[in-house]
Design a protein around this nucleic acid. Structure first.
Lengths: 230, 230
DNA sequence: AAAAATCTTAAGACTTTCTTAAGTTCCGCG
DNA sequence: CGCGGAACTTAAGAAAGTCTTAAGATTTTT
């Protein structure tokens, strides 16, 4: 269960954190949001493969949020709620949720359900909302095969190099600070990691650029970070 | 919700009939089976798009039956059980069930879950997203005969070897981490299984590759996993 | 009981990652 | 303009991690 991002939406920090700990343990990355509004923001910022969502929340509740998400994307949603009355379950499933877990819940059950849904997605081959193939002026990325090619010629990247390229290519033109890059690729807070990232950028340029000194694809934005040219 | 066949497996006639009435009302056709053995028979006789299965049954129980079915097909299975203990839920989901409903259940909830699963299938476009015969540059896989051949010459694989090959060949070009492979073939969380998988990969290469040291089909993607070349 | 299949261990080859340190470019300010 | 410092680039090698392979122990099947 690698490389999956799960968005956990709940107004209680303890619950979010608890779920995060369990999912991390399974190699799943967790992104947290406190309410529906925040959830929709996070959804725009990064690829999310599954959502665990509380129903009772301030601002925008779980049912409404599910509705809004369903208008755009087909990500699996697991509803989490204190209410255990049947009508709510039925409502949750009818509006397009894929599963339903009632509080208090056994963490193992939630994890099993999360994994069950994610497994289904692997089987399908594509996760919705995540494009599997990107082409930027001849530089191509195949997320399934984890393959990068330049004008059709496959480029051999190391795992870290690949992840950096995938991140940058997934959001063409968007600038990522060294810190952003570090945290998203290494999935841990960055500390003194400036050069580490820089070295990898160098290696990547060596492989994907015709003239690494005058990069055409992987550009620096002085004082801010790096980006992949659109 | 038309043209769907749902197999209801339970030893109590009243339950089977009750479910049938509700599902029929939704335009869904129901096929009944009294136990696991009968279920497997019905599965062979006609197209079934979803299974609702009790756990406690004579002859062949629900968990074992689910296991047997999963070896062959990828139909959605909803487990139905009197036990509501968490461990059973987790077990049910882990062995490959897609959902879990505890008795006594609200018929409306069961129907909602059935429809939710079926809806997913409609979305997918295919009932069974699995092709039965695959040919990748001369390496062929026949899922019905469980046979792998290279340029027509049948290759003798052990069960585990076969499952690994089937997994990889079913998604050509897609990279699977060792963990993914382990979890999907062994159907249990992987722990210290790195070498186990590696050894099987080795054996497979010995059998399907002309030059195992320079594999043409079963490739490694450094630091990430293995894949079958498209 | 023999044969086949699976798992474990471990060593060596190979690849990747990180660190350090030095070089270069860019930007603002006198 | 050109100087100084900050930001970025580059190189090289040590450390860490991954993959392959072999051999034998254990379990399962025949």
């Amino acid at each position: 269960m690698n490389d999956f991002n799960v968005l956990v939406v709940d107004d209680e920090k303890e619950i979010r954190d608890a779920i995060e700990i369990y999912l991390k343990n399974e190699g799943i990355t967790v992104v947290q949001a406190r309410d529906g509004i925040e959830a929709l923001e996070k959804l725009d910022e990064q690829p999310i493969h599954l959502i665990v969502m509380d129903i009772m929340m301030p601002k925008l509740d779980g049912i409404s949020t599910t509705f809004k998400i369903r208008e755009q994307k087909n990500i699996p949603i697991i509803i989490l709620s204190a209410k255990s009355e049947d009508t709510d379950k039925v409502l949750g499933l009818q509006i397009g949720a894929d599963d339903y877990v009632t509080k208090p819940f056994n963490p193992l059950e939630l994890i099993a359900r999360v994994k069950s849904q994610l497994r289904r997605y692997i089987t399908l081959g594509t996760y919705e909302g995540k494009r599997n193939f990107i082409d930027l002026n001849g530089l191509t990325l195949d997320k399934e095969a984890k393959e990068v090619a330049i004008n059709g010629d496959s480029v051999k990247l190391t795992p870290i190099e690949y992840k950096i390229v995938e991140l940058l290519m997934s959001y063409p033109g968007r600038v990522f600070s060294i810190n952003d890059i570090y945290e998203r690729v290494w999935k841990e807070p960055s500390y003194n990691a400036e050069n580490t990232v820089a070295v990898h950028i160098r290696k990547i340029r060596e492989k994907i650029e015709i003239d690494p000194k005058n990069p055409r694809y992987l550009k620096v934005v002085w004082g801010i970070g790096y980006k992949m040219e659109k």
